[in-house]
Design a protein around this nucleic acid. Sequence first.
DNA 1: TGTTAGCACTCTCAATCGAAGAGTGCTAAC
DNA 2: GTTAGCACTCTTCGATTGAGAGTGCTAACA
Lengths: 345, 345
Amino acid sequence: MDLVERKFRILQAIVDDYIVTALPVGSRTISRKYEQNLSSATIRNEMSDLEELGYLDSPHTSAGRVPSYKAYRLYVDRLMKRTPLGAEEAQAISRFFDRRMRQMEDVAERAAHALSSVTHYTTAVMTRQTGEDDLKLRHLQLVKVTENTALLLLVTDAGVVKQTPMHVSPGMSTDDLYKVSRMLTERLAGCRLGQVQSILEGIGAEFRDQNELLSGMLETLRESATPEGHTDLVVGGTSNLLEYPEYSDVEKARNLLSVLETREKVIRLLQGGAQMEFSVRIGPETGLPETKDCSVVSATYRLGDGRVNTIGIIGPTRMQYGRVISALEYMGKALMETLSGQEQK
Amino acid sequence: MDLVERKFRILQAIVDDYIVTALPVGSRTISRKYEQNLSSATIRNEMSDLEELGYLDSPHTSAGRVPSYKAYRLYVDRLMKRTPLGAEEAQAISRFFDRRMRQMEDVAERAAHALSSVTHYTTAVMTRQTGEDDLKLRHLQLVKVTENTALLLLVTDAGVVKQTPMHVSPGMSTDDLYKVSRMLTERLAGCRLGQVQSILEGIGAEFRDQNELLSGMLETLRESATPEGHTDLVVGGTSNLLEYPEYSDVEKARNLLSVLETREKVIRLLQGGAQMEFSVRIGPETGLPETKDCSVVSATYRLGDGRVNTIGIIGPTRMQYGRVISALEYMGKALMETLSGQEQK
DNA sequence: TGTTAGCACTCTCAATCGAAGAGTGCTAAC
DNA sequence: GTTAGCACTCTTCGATTGAGAGTGCTAACA
């Protein structure tokens, strides 16, 4: 029997146990529950080694051991087994999609709720367009709302991006706006958002009398061209976190919650692993000082229609990684099927 | 000096003090801080009376007294003085509106953040249309997104209501959809959402070959006609609540947070006072068992464009009612100016 | 009649102390 | 290389205690 292998089997047992109990793990616990043919003294020696190697910390002399970030890293990369979703859990996720799809925005919200309730952690769903370069304008529509305001709708490859109230001169009739919309759409459809601006400026001459309207539209377009301009974000299940003892200190809980309320920070949290399809970031790897004892498991799905969805599950470092990854995987499949052509199955 | 008046002045002092400290108020505190020409013994007698009248509770024999719901009710209705907003606070609210207005959805989110940060409580902003009867369709647009999906946009008096992916047969070109949209808009614009359905069914005959598309649109319309179909809800500042000692018990905090995460419950919380323009609901009056020691101060604004905004501020029963009401009032003015015709000032 | 001082009484809160329990590290024996 | 045994450390929990805050009552006073 390889002794190094045994060492890591013990480490795995410690992490497994700690993930469930949140209590420092002692040598006797391991020898009773996981390695019955080894005595606690042997385990003790191994644990002492593991501590020296940086995989374990001891809160104080006579508590058990607690996994370090390094241990979780190793655990996720090599030791952990994926826990397949139970039938009821898989069903809970599917159920969110079996009704006919309604609002686009609903998808993210539903996904967030489904995952939160299955995993008992917090879920963040971020939807954004593929790089701004790829984003093409499809349709532009001005809709009269009150005597002197209209709503500018910008539709891109991936749905309505902007919906902004505009000033129009009271002289413009519903039909006038309709014509303008049609004309502009004809000229601009298929252009990238970045280009649209300059073209619109060129057209400016024809609309001398509607300068105010034009400059309003220009500004809206400018904003739409930035990636932040069309990033939707939904966060669900934040109250779940309070069920874990690591946040029974209200101050800690408050800090974390306030991160989850800050759009920019959540986006940062999700972006960290944006390169890869799947990513697990542990503790300090999350990038924010406030989440240095949280982990984020995230997955990115490229939908057929040009949108990119990133789903992140946020919980304490002693997260049930195996389960969470399975849940994300399952959700990914469900999302793909539902959104990029419902009939393709 | 009227003795009854004095009694209530003392009650006011107790509530005032308790709102700030969250600690049971003793007779000596009152005699020192609020009624210097009365001895603590006198106050004690009065407090004993007030307890008998149901305005005060005592947690135990030798703690001070704590206001009852009845006391808060009286306080809000008759005793309390509105606390005008400080200059910096007013500015904090204004600042959310002085930039050019961007996305419609942003308004609610910004308002929620502004109010949360000024009041240090939680803010919920609900936007919905006036009764479904009044809601008229303005524009309908099908935009091709992928080979066999299009996006159906429904625009009403008050902005885009629905944005739903639809199946279309691959034969339909961008231009075909454009024509269909135009045709449908011409026939349907100005109709109430409820009517649109039946008209659309009537038109059905002309679109024999597009049955799938038509039934999809019908379903979307059906959903849009219900009030829940177009109620936007934003909640901000939930982490603020954790700063109050009443939620230092994690279990309590969790319960409350989970209410604030449940769309339906928050809507219920805001609807309670929907009849009035301004409403203060205290403890059990909030209607939900989970919020029996919270208060909700809400205000409803009818915007020019047919939308109704309800903003509610949620906090512990010992809320700074005076300040909160002032903040809501101020926000109301700012909202009105910004949204219903920006130039009307 | 209303106000006040004084006092006994009650209850909480924080600090202290000690015993129990869990776990370690080390040593010596197998 | 493994294990039993043991001394040692550190936390946790319960009980005890004293201080402090606040009340209610009584009796005296204006």
